[in-house]
């Protein structure tokens, strides 16, 4: 938990994918973190980047932990609670490791780029070679470090590959400004849309996106 801790400690304690997300956020901006968990990212952004942060979290324990630490977080979920926000209310809307757990990822993505000038989405890549290999070799639903649930109890009901996500963005008028992928060793590599192997060799992807406008 980095909440309230000194800046350098916060930096050290932040999970690697959260650190990449944090690096995409401009200092002093307004941020909505959807599925903010215990508030680690919000607390970090508040302390290190002077961000005006808000959060939405489904679990009571998560919300209570956030509010107890002075963060502005509401109990809610991505599928139902984004509709209430006005357009362009935030500079960034962040959805970390949650897209695959929403009932309607397409609508959630559209809502995110409506209420935020930019959105940051991270998710596990179902096109990762280990996932493919496990299904091929065992004939059973893959379980990996990132996807560690049995099929009958997983909250991850809408898994996708990097390619699937890129195609969804295209379909709903969302422009990818930047992408970073993590390989099996957890090393981060800039994602290039033309690259042939990212979808095979990345265990997760983190994308900075915005809605398409007339200049695109």
């Amino acid at each position: 938990m980095v909440v309230g801790g000194p800046d350098h400690e916060g930096q050290a304690a932040l999970r690697s994918d959260l650190r990449i997300v944090a690096d995409m956020v401009e200092p002093g901006s307004r941020v909505l973190d959807v599925g903010c968990g215990d508030g680690a990212l919000l607390a970090y952004l508040g302390h290190v980047k002077q961000v005006d942060g808000r959060g939405v979290e489904l679990s009571q324990s998560g919300v209570n932990a956030c509010v107890r630490h002075g963060l502005s977080v509401i109990q809610g979920d991505a599928d139902t609670d984004l509709k209430a926000y006005p357009s362009d209310a935030f500079d960034y809307v962040i959805l970390g490791q949650t897209l695959q757990a929403t009932r309607n990822p397409k609508e959630v993505l559209q809502e995110m780029v409506r209420i935020g000038r930019r959105a940051i989405v991270s998710f596990p890549n179902f096109g990762f070679w280990k996932v493919r290999l496990e299904l091929l070799m065992t004939g059973r639903m893959p379980m990996t470090d990132v996807l560690s649930y049995e099929w009958y109890e997983t909250p991850n009901i809408h898994l996708c590959s990097l390619k699937d996500f890129i195609s969804l963005c295209d379909e709903v008028g969302v422009v990818i400004e930047r992408g970073v992928v993590l390989n099996s060793g957890g090393r981060d590599i800039d994602f290039s849309p033309g690259g042939l192997f990212a979808n095979l060799f990345s265990r997760e992807g983190i994308f900075l996106v915005r809605r398409r406008d007339s200049s695109d």
């Binding site: 919300v63 502005s72 977080v73």
Partner: peptide
């Protein structure tokens, strides 16, 4: 876009 926290106990 008000600053709001909400907890259901």
């Amino acid at each position: 876009a008000a600053n709001v926290s909400f907890v259901e106990v």
